[in-house]
Write a protein that binds this DNA or RNA. Structure first.
Lengths: 112, 112
DNA sequence: TTCGTAGTACTAGAAATATCGTACAATAGA
DNA sequence: TCTATTGTACGATATTTCTAGTACTACGAA
């Protein structure tokens, strides 16, 4: 079984977390994970990028501590590390998710 | 009097705001403004960068909507747009400031 | 064992970002 | 009016980030 490195809660850095969240593709991933009731494979995301770029973004999220990735066969199951993040940076993830949601709503209503 | 362009509350974008906050120099500026009881001139910040780079970072913050800049003679007075941010992205600024504060505290206590 | 699927490693290029130096503009005060 | 101060504009450069293609690995299933 292949191993994937994750930072501990204490190792999480605000710098890295905010950089990770400042990319729209990665916020899309985080947002989808936040809504999902079960863990999601990387292929479960409709991202406007190539497979290798997708790998890159998932790695950025994992190394920042935002998601947990574990192998299950050849697929990787992704989970949002919501509790760890809440403990390390209280309120941060919630505020970003809420902001992202409100922005998406606005954008959609503009189109309609 | 020279004019400086600021986004309205509705024009603020999560993307831009998070990018702005993901730089440590800019978080230092925002943190100092959050603590300040009066508006601060750009020169009131001890930043580890040149004057022209400093101008650049203040502009990024202003264009993201994080700070208000207004001329008073040749100096610019900077204010955190805390209320606008709270209205647009509730909880976000607070969470980032709190996270930054806790990280600084940790780093300091490691040195001692 | 062969095949298909999920994702990685590596390389390379494009684009964005952070940095600075120098010359300059605007203003206050002597 | 002269001078000092505060910050900008512009150009150049280094670094980082995002992107993709290609060849590959690991695993499950037929």
């Amino acid at each position: 079984m292949r191993a994937l490195a994750h930072p501990t809660q204490a190792e999480m850095q605000l710098d890295t977390v905010l950089s990770a969240l400042s990319d729209p593709v990665r916020r899309q991933i985080v947002g989808q994970l936040a809504n999902a009731s079960i863990d999601q494979a990387c292929s479960a995301f409709q991202l406007p990028i190539s497979k290798s770029t997708s790998t890159y973004h998932f790695r950025v999220l994992r190394e920042a501590g935002l998601i947990e990735q574990r192998y299950s066969g050849t697929t990787i199951l992704n989970t949002l590390r919501a509790a760890d993040l809440e403990a390390r940076f209280p309120g941060l993830l919630r505020a970003v998710l809420r902001a992202a949601r409100s922005e998406t709503t606005l954008a959609t209503s503009e189109v309609e």
